[in-house]
Amino acid sequence: MLEIFGTQVNLDPIWLTLEVAAITTVVLILLGTPLAWWMAQMRSSNKVLLEALVALPLVLPPTVLGFYLLIVFNPNGPVTDFLRFFGFEGQLTFSKTGLVIGSVFYSLPFAVQPLMHAFEAIPHRLLDAAATLRAGVLDRFFSIVVPLSQRGFLVAATLTFAHTVGEFGVVLMVGGNIPGETRMVSIDIFDHVESLEYDQAHILSAIMLIFSLMVLMLVYGLNRRFGVKVG
């Protein structure tokens, strides 16, 4: 509890939100990069299906995604059993792990699309040239593709992070509303409003507003600098 302008505010939901968003961003960059690369290289018509699948969270009501995840994460279901086999304890629903997994699905297009577009923009001849200079596949990726996609990575990370911070529906469905455990800031604000605690809602909302603005300004500032260097 922290007292701001004479109002008791619990900042735990903010910390939890930032933690989940940060973990989700790291996970999505790690998983989204190979997926985006694979998709960028694809020539077949399967690409259409894959692109549609990746973009699905953009269109689907978050509650739909959350609902399916809730079903899949069933504590007695095959997915949880499968994870238990590898020593996983606890459950996926109403836990932080579940929140992160849910957020990864929910924010997938925000990581994959910018990365894929960045990868597609790299002239293939550069990779051919690198190959004739004896760079192997991974070497080419890290020495040519990654540096030339800096912008794409920056955009992907920012959008993923920001989108995860702002999520509501999926979080509510998968994580529920356990204080200190799965109560993220968006839900907390909703609760305060429901209980007519407008002071707390005001303070939390203002903090999020200022924080989000600062993050975006930082990123666009960086983007400009990178833009000059790379362009």
Binding site: R125, L126, D128, T132, R134, A135, G136, S143, V230
Partner: peptide, 30 residues
């Protein structure tokens, strides 16, 4: 056999220099 194992040099129509590197870094790549 992979192109990197063939010991070939390739000069492309548009040079295909790595745009994020200086001339020296391009030369040092191989």
């Amino acid at each position: 056999a992979s192109p990197q194992s063939r010991n070939i040099g390739f000069v492309f129509q548009d040079a295909a220099l790595f745009p994020h590197m200086t001339v020296r870094q391009n030369l040092m790549y191989g």
